[in-house]
Design a binder for these strands. Structure first.
Length: 487
RNA sequence: GGCGGCGUACCCAAGCGGCUAAGGGAGAGGUCUGCAAAACCUUUAUUCGCCGGUUCGAAUCCGGCCGCCGCCUCCA
């Protein structure tokens, strides 16, 4: 496996610290508001990375934290007039609601900053003792100039950063880039006792404390959005390595941003879409496929158009699956061999290898999906050649199994066509039930029996108006919800 | 200003020195069908922002230019 390591700036062969095991820490979210699609991207990217390591047979420990104490949470609490911990609790719940819907698996451990105050204080104490940190009025700062390698992740020297520094000049700090390990609390703010007076942890220290506690002083992979490279991850390295004297993380993985009109989606620009809103209009699987259709390090332009394309892709899978189900329901019949057996057999057999080759190369999910669509076409071609019998049945079953297994790594293509179409029906055509559609289909069937094409077509057109497509197949008429651009 | 990235067909997108430049969407034509839909087939890049260079050979490596974006402050 090759993984792009932000630290070295290139793809490296991945070899874990401990044979057969991978320890991953991904930065989660600060729970002060609903998550937007950018948060979804990060969560899904690392969800897939974790699933892929597991697929490859690694024993994976995956940790994703919650920042549950921070200025933004305190501000939000003031705004909403509720206690700060209530804000954290509420948005943690909302986070789970969104991520569960998107098929993001829970991490093995989901630690919270406030549960690790003891460990944080321990590290801060150690850093002061070792001369890397200093106390000012109850605050504790990390002294960046004491750490020789400061800037090695973001590839900047202290001098470079000073030149373009836009940081607030705080006269109490020895260097404007010194960052807070511990912040003294103001009156009425949440506070924990510490050797430096009541206060709360700085933002960066929690990740060092939690990752090292649960994964050890050196672990394999640490990740998050590319905007965390500086200062967050740079600071984590500084404080962790200064404290332990050991390398902190072996591979740093960062995902790219989501853009709107080619600009980074962010809270401050106000150009963001919440996961909640998107899921009102698109199936979660569509969002996953949309996000995985581009390499994780590239920017993705978010648009309705793009989601519709992803929807068409997902629909293509389930439409084919539906064909397969119909084929199977016709039962085992007279053996009729197809000249396309061999191409299908080969595509099926090579899918796993091609999938792994793509994923082994820095988690190329876009290429992996491309291979899956190729097999999908092979299945359709085979079905078009009108085969029947046991050989055909087993070839098709093998092909579908291969798609299901590789799909499981991306956590897509795991439902039945019926579930997919019912899900679309609920969100797209809420005023129509499956029973009503079935009734129309029966009406049309009797019209067709009498060769009353006009009446039959009128019924079909009526449903089409509402976004429901009827298809006449060998085993009767089936319905689908119009997906993609045509919808 | 410093550092980093990107520019591949109508749109999205893979491609990391050499097989016909994946795949999806959209459009056009065809096969199938009562008609459709779906599916399949054909078609839309002799060419990868532009200009040079290295090489037997470059979308892929190097240099310059143009355009876009990100980080340097909280941010996934």
């Amino acid at each position: 496996m090759r993984v792009f390591n932000t630290l070295s700036g290139k793809k490296e062969v991945f070899s874990p610290l401990e044979e057969g095991k991978v320890k991953i820490y991904a930065c989660g979210v600060t729970v002060y508001d609903l998550c937007h699609i950018g948060h979804a991207r990060s969560a899904i990217v690392f969800d897939v990375i974790r699933r892929y390591f597991r697929y490859k047979g690694f024993d994976v420990t995956y940790i994703r934290n919650f920042t549950d104490i921070d200025d933004k949470i305190i501000n939000r609490a003031k705004k909403e007039g509720i206690p700060w911990d209530e804000v954290a609790r509420k948005y943690t719940e909302e986070y789970y609601r969104d991520m569960d819907a998107l098929g993001v698996e829970r991490a093995d451990l989901e630690p919270r900053a406030t549960e690790h105050i003891k460990e944080i204080i321990e590290i801060v104490k150690g850093l002061i003792e070792k001369g890397y940190a200093y106390v000012v009025d109850g605050d504790v700062y990390f002294e960046v100039e004491k750490f020789k390698d400061y800037g090695k992740l973001s590839k900047r020297s202290l001098k470079d950063m000073m030149a373009g520094a836009r940081v607030d000049v705080d006269e109490r700090k020895k260097n404007p880039l010194d960052f807070a390990l511990w912040k003294a609390s103001k009156e009425g703010e949440p506070a924990w006792p510490s050797p430096w007076g009541p206060g709360r942890p700085g933002w960066h220290i929690e990740c060092s404390a939690m990752s090292m506690k649960h994964l050890g002083e050196t672990f394999d992979i640490h990740g998050g959005g590319a905007d965390l490279i500086f200062p967050h991850h740079e600071n984590e390295i500084a404080q962790s390595e200064a404290y332990t004297g050991k390398p902190f993380v072996r591979y740093w993985i960062h995902n790219g941003f989501i853009t709107i009109d080619r600009e980074k989606m962010s809270k401050s620009l106000g150009n963001f879409f919440t996961i909640r809103d998107i899921l009102k209009r698109f199936d979660p699987e569509v969002v996953r496929v949309f996000l995985l259709s581009t390499h994780y390090r590239s920017p993705i332009e978010f648009s309705e158009e793009q989601l519709l394309e992803a929807e068409a892709s997902v629909d293509r899978f389930y439409t084919t699956l539906q064909r397969v189900e119909i084929f199977k329901s016709l039962g085992s019949r007279k053996e009729r061999r197809s000249p396309l057996e061999e191409p299908l057999r080969q595509s099926t057999e090579s899918l796993r290898a091609r999938f792994e080759e793509a994923m082994d190369d820095d988690f190329n999910t876009a290429l992996a999906l491309g291979h899956m669509y190729e097999l999908l076409r092979e299945i359709n071609r085979f079905l078009d050649s009108k085969p029947s019998g046991d050989v055909a049945l087993s070839l098709i079953s093998d092909a579908i199994r291969a798609l299901r297994e590789t799909g499981a790594v991306l956590n897509v293509f795991q439902r039945s066509p019926k579930e997919w179409h019912l899900s679309l029906l609920r969100t797209r055509v809420p005023n129509m039930t499956e029973e009503e559609i079935q009734k129309k289909i029966e009406l049309r069937a009797s019209a067709r029996k009498e060769k009353d094409w006009k009446r039959a077509d009128a019924i079909r057109d009526e449903l089409k108006e509402k976004g429901i497509i009827l298809e006449d197949t060998p085993s009767g008429t089936i319905w689908r919800v119009k997906a993609g651009h045509g919808r």
